[in-house]
Amino acid sequence: MSKASTSTTSKISSFVLMIIFVTLALSLTALILALYAFPQNPEAAGYLLLIGFLGVGLSTYVLLQTRRRILRLRIEATSITTTIECKKCGFKSLREFQRGDYIFKEVEPCQKCNDKMLITAIFREIKGKRKEGFPS
C-alpha cells in the first residue's frame, strides 16, 4: 500500500534516450579531440572544447529533465496511522492503517488489561512544514 505506483507512461522513450547518449558520446569525442588538437592548433581546440562542454551540458540537462518528469508522474502513497486505545487502562498503540479500520471500531483485546480496545484516531502526518512565504 505504501508503494508508489508507476505505469507505462512513466518510461523514457528509447529514441530520446538514444539521441541523448549519441550527443553525449559526440561531445566527449569533441573534448578528447580538443586535448589532442591543443598543441598544434589552439584556436580549433578552443572551439572543440566549447562544443564539447555545450553538448555534455545539454544532454545531461535533457536527461535530468526526463527523469524529473518520471518522478512527477508518480502518485505518492501516504502512510496512514491508526491509533488504538484502551479506555480502561489507557494503553495506547500506533500501527499502519489496515483495510476495515474506522474511528470508534472495537478491535483486539488490550495487552495489559484484556479489555476491548478502540480505534480512536486515523490520520496522516505531513513531515516538514511548508513555508507559506508571507507573514500572517
Binding site: M1, R99, Y102
Partner: peptide
C-alpha cells in the same frame, strides 16, 4: 481526486469528514 480515490478504496477518513468526526 487521485488521493481521494485511494482513501475511498481503503475506507480511510478524509479531511471533509472533520464535521462528522466532531459529531461522532
Amino acid at each position: 481526486y487521485a488521493s481521494a480515490l485511494k482513501a475511498f478504496a481503503y475506507g480511510q477518513p478524509i479531511g471533509d469528514g472533520a464535521g462528522a468526526l466532531v459529531g461522532a
